[in-house]
Design a protein around this nucleic acid. Structure first.
Length: 975
DNA sequence: CAGTGAGCGAGCTTCCGCTTGACTT
């Protein structure tokens, strides 16, 4: 008997298909992609470690050849599949019928190396008939489609892994950029910018309760007075809060509105026109992933992740079809099942004569699956599953069931009534009577159709139906009514609403960005990276998002175009259709060949030209011209005005930052906070953020009575008085030893003990308070530095070898590492220091041991490409191995000069000058005065309104900053 | 710009899409 192996993507799907097929078939799953580019250094195979391109996983020089590895957590499963594949007579690759599915099939083919016949089959619904038809009509792997996927993968990698480092350099480490997340972030930022520019305004209108002669009431609204239309929200310019210049309208203020309402009271009105128009409404299409997430949010209040988790459970339990889809198509069996249920539950009147089909495609839809619907040939009703399902799952099933059934129900039908009423205000002494025009509209539903089962955005269809009706009494032209109860009401124009998870997904989908399988995780990513935070349902972009988005918009505009993905998709379609080639496309995109965007050269220029300081400064319209700036810094966002700084609290959203708020924050600058009173002196204890980090001080005068740095575990914002006083009690005298006092200090490099001219570091700051005399003396018995034979230095392990120098495991600043005196290797995560044996130690050190790095000037421009190995490994120095190499830029000319002048040459003013932009105005003024005009700090300080001490500190800092900027820009350090 | 005792192995961060458990809290 022959033996056929069918491989699909999802285990749940495999189970279902196995049920349809008889003996001779084994159905297994790949569980998604099985191979990918290495995602970090740890995943790069040894063989490629040294290659410059290995970090990308794409060999640029070799036609962007990808380096694929089986993901570590997939190895066992792939081995299992390989075994099955090699035993099978026939292997059918039945992954999804889309770009990614085709690629998975190809990777399976490559990795499993089947012995027998290999075929490819596809299907779009999981029914017995569909599967059998697919088996009967196999095809081959479409290599063009695979190429298109590979191109997509490469482009995303190049974008993500090349642009992110620009952000690390110019904004903050660990940030990220990507084709999808950067556009998503930009959407949030642009919406928030609209809100920040928004100027709100007030307007009034008048609701009039009217009554007919028969005493029937209905609501109407005042439209016009004296032939002029009343202003409404849309007549105001959101940027100025003023009426749009071309709006020929009357704006009511409160006083006029009240007067007008009074003058309308009990006035007679005449019906000028009464129109009635029938309307009908079609049901919504069955769910796809994005609409499921939207309705999950609107009706159930679920976030995207929660919706998907519930749907996944339902799918695995066989209750619904696949939940990651962009197709609204229902299979034949689903349509029959839905129609049967409509008939049974609502009757023939609710069943349209013909089944409905939904064909409107989302942008870039791939349509590998059905719509999301209850599974099977007969839908189980939610009621029948009440006891079977968990709470979230049941609600989700109920939602899906209703939407699916409703999608096969009849249109809703009803009538809209539009009534115009005319009259006059009461004339009097103050003013003449004026013509007024009012309108009333009604809506009645004659036949609810699908609305009986499902109303979008509403939990309870019955209540929603009632809301949708506004019944007007029968009104005829010429009929008289009375304006019984005119009520003025005030309104404010509203800024555009922030995105929610659901509306962001909707916008992304609308632009064809992201895929059903990633919508939920996109939201997770932008929050994880600190680009957005949730506030209730709303996604609020952070100041970091503003800085990042501005950088990308100004310097990589094409990449954050809302159309970027759409254009890419067109090209990918061309590649899939054989009209374009992967290689030239990527060369054009990355290298700029043939006039393409040329990402790499662009990054090279931008790395040099982007000014981090201006990128960190965020434009806030409401603060324009005030001299107040918003910046994102290492410790978060802050405000500056001249030299005054103030942190921006986390819970302040960007659109709430106006002049008043800024003044308030700046009036208590940089988080200076009085914690309490020092019982010893009666002076205030103040928490401050200083040049060297957070600290507390006693007294508000300058100089303070005493200061103390916080420990890393302390939080400036929450530090209490007791703790502050404890810190201020340092240094502590531990005792007297060898005729000298031992003191415990908290210093620049952390906690330490001092005895005369000798010192020892402590491991933990808290030991400053606890170390006893005995412990202190024991510590001074030990050698000064770690790595010696002392017990506390703890050489963690040592391995001896017959044929090489011994290797020791040490604990260092960056965690445990191995060394043989020549080369060192830090342990990576996953390498357990306690279970390490000699063989492991040797392997690790020999594989990736590195000679201690010497400080090197950054001449990056040439390093990457041409010089590979030769430049990467400087020749070992012949000097005595124990002695550390002199700190000396590698760019210096000779070893002799290095020995003669162990310190690097100071930079010349000419070298420093181009970097003046990194300084603040005051710093710049100081530095130019002293270095360019040779003036003394003492002389310049008064002109700048600084006291001399402050100015000297500032000048020192400024000089450091300048030097650093010059070094980082790769300026040569010689001559 | 609060002021303090020296000097020791860096290396990694990051993308988008396709899929589930296996982990710990």
């Amino acid at each position: 008997m022959s033996n056929t192996l069918i491989i699909v993507e999802s285990p749940a799907k495999a189970k279902t298909i196995a049920k349809y097929l008889g003996k001779g078939y084994t159905v297994e799953s790949s569980i998604g992609h099985i191979r990918d580019l290495p995602k970090s250094a740890a995943e790069i195979p040894e063989k490629y470690k040294g290659q410059a391109w290995a970090r990308l996983g794409l060999d640029i020089e070799d036609d962007f050849r990808p380096l694929y590895i089986v993901s570590p957590d997939k190895r066992a499963h792939v081995a299992y599949l390989r075994k099955l594949a090699q035993q099978a007579d026939e292997v059918i690759l039945a992954t999804d019928d889309d770009r990614e599915g085709e690629s998975i099939a190809w990777h399976l083919y490559q990795e499993l190396k089947p012995k027998g016949v290999v075929k490819r089959m596809v299907f779009h619904e999981i029914t017995k008939a569909a599967i059998e038809a697919a088996i009967a009509n196999p095809r081959q792997i479409d290599s063009n489609l695979v190429e298109a996927q590979e191109t997509r993968r490469a482009l995303d990698r190049l974008y993500g892994y090349e642009v992110s480092p620009v952000l690390w350099r110019k904004v903050a480490p660990k940030l990220s950029a990507g084709r999808v997340q950067s556009v998503a972030t930009r959407m949030l930022v642009e919406r928030e910018r609209e809100r920040m520019r928004f100027v709100e305004s007030q307007w009034w209108d008048i609701e009039v309760g009217c009554v007919t002669a028969d005493g029937e009431g209905f609501p109407a609204r005042l439209l016009e007075v004296g032939g002029v239309r009343l202003a409404q929200g849309r007549d105001f310019d959101p940027l100025t809060g003023k009426l749009k210049p071309d709006a020929q309208v009357l704006r009511l203020d409160e006083e006029t509105a009240r007067a007008l309402a009074n003058s309308l009271k009990e006035q007679a009105l005449k019906v000028l026109s009464a129109e009635e128009k029938p309307f009908s409404q079609k049901p919504y299409a069955p769910f796809i992933t994005s609409t499921l997430q939207q309705e999950g949010s609107r009706k159930l209040g679920f976030g995207a992740q929660r919706t998907m988790r519930a749907a996944q459970k339902l799918y695995e339990g066989g209750y619904i079809t696949y939940m990651r889809t962009d197709s609204t198509t229902l299979s034949g069996e689903a349509i029959s099942a839905a129609r049967a249920q409509v008939k049974a539950l609502y009757g023939d009147a609710y069943l349209p004569a013909q089944p409905r089909s939904y064909t409107k495609k989302a942008k870039n839809a791939q349509e590998a699956h059905e719509a999301i619907r209850p599974a099977g040939t007969a839908f189980r009703t939610p009621d029948s599953l009440k006891t079977e399902l968990g709470s979230d799952e049941w609600k989700m099933y109920d939602l899906i069931w209703k939407r699916t059934v409703a999608s096969q129900m009849a249109d809703a039908r009803g009538r809209r009534m539009q009534v115009r009423l005319g009259g006059q205000t009461q004339g009097g002494q103050a003013q003449d009577a004026r013509e007024v025009l009012l309108s009333a509209s009604g809506r009645s539903i004659d036949f609810p159709g699908f609305l009986r089962a499902y109303v979008e955005g509403r939990d309870d269809p019955q209540a929603a139906l009632e809301d949708r009706e506004t019944i007007l009494p029968p009104l005829k032209e010429g009929q008289q009514v009375t304006a019984a109860d005119p009520v003025p009401s005030g309104h404010q124009t509203q800024p555009p609403a922030r995105y929610t998870e659901a509306s962001l997904v909707q916008s992304l989908e609308g632009a064809g960005i992201g895929r059903p399988s990633t919508y939920a995780s996109i939201i997770g990513t932008i929050q994880d990276r600190g680009y957005a935070a949730k506030k209730g349902q709303a996604l609020v972009p952070t100041w970091t998002a503003f800085a990042t988005s501005a950088l990308l918009e100004h310097h990589f505009g094409t990449l954050v175009d809302y159309d970027f993905t759409a254009k890419m998709e067109e090209d990918l379609d061309d590649i899939a259709g054989g009209r374009q080639q992967r290689g030239p496309y990527l060369r054009s995109f990355f290298l700029g060949e043939g006039g393409g965007m040329g990402l790499r050269p662009l990054i090279e220029t931008q790395m040099e030209t982007i000014d981090p300081r201006s990128i960190a400064t965020i434009a806030v319209p409401k603060l324009e011209g005030s001299g107040i700036e918003v910046r994102v810094g290492k410790y978060g966002p802050y405000l500056t005005r001249g030299e005054t700084k103030a942190n921006i609290p986390e819970d302040l959203t960007p659109d709430d930052l106006d002049m008043a708020k800024a003044e308030e924050l700046l009036s208590r600058p940089s988080g200076d906070r009085i914690i309490g009173e020092d019982p010893g002196t009666g002076l205030a204890v103040v928490a401050k953020a200083g040049r060297f980090g957070p600290y507390v001080q006693i007294g508000e005068e300058n100089p303070p009575v005493r200061t103390a740095s916080l420990f890393p575990s302390d939080d400036l914002a929450t530090l209490g008085l007791d703790r502050a006083l404890k810190l201020l009690s340092l240094p502590r005298m531990v005792g007297v030893s060898e005729g000298e006092e031992i003191w415990a200090h908290n210093g620049k490099f952390g906690p330490y003990l001092k005895r005369g001219n000798d010192s020892r570091s402590l491991a933990i700051p808290e030991q400053l308070f606890t170390t006893s005399m005995i412990e202190a003396e024991a510590l001074f018995m030990q050698p000064r530095f770690k790595g010696g034979r002392g017990a506390s230095a703890a050489p963690l392990a040592s391995f001896e070898f017959p044929d090489r120098a011994p290797i020791t495991l040490k604990s260092g600043r960056f965690g445990p590492y191995l060394t043989d005196g020549e080369r060192n290797a830090t342990l990576r995560k996953g390498e357990d220091q306690s279970s390490l044996n000699a063989v492991d130690a040797r392997n690790i050190l020999e594989e990736r041991g590195k000679e201690p790095k010497k400080k090197e000037a950054k001449g990056r421009r040439t390093a990457t490409k041409a010089s590979g190995k030769a430049a990467a490994k400087p020749a070992t120095k012949k000097a005595a191995p124990k002695k550390p190499a002199a700190k000396k830029p590698a760019a210096s000319k000779t070893a002799a000069s290095a020995a003669a002048k162990p310190k690097s040459q100071p930079m010349t003013w000419a070298q420093l000058r181009p970097h003046l932009s990194v300084l603040s105005d005051q710093e710049r003024a100081l530095v130019t005065a002293t270095r360019e005009r040779g003036e003394k700090v003492e002389a310049v300080a008064p002109e700048l309104g600084l006291d001399v001490k402050k100015a000297k500190g500032m000048a020192l800092q400024a000089s450091k900053k300048l030097n650093q900027a010059a070094r980082e820009s790769g300026a040569p350090t010689g001559h």
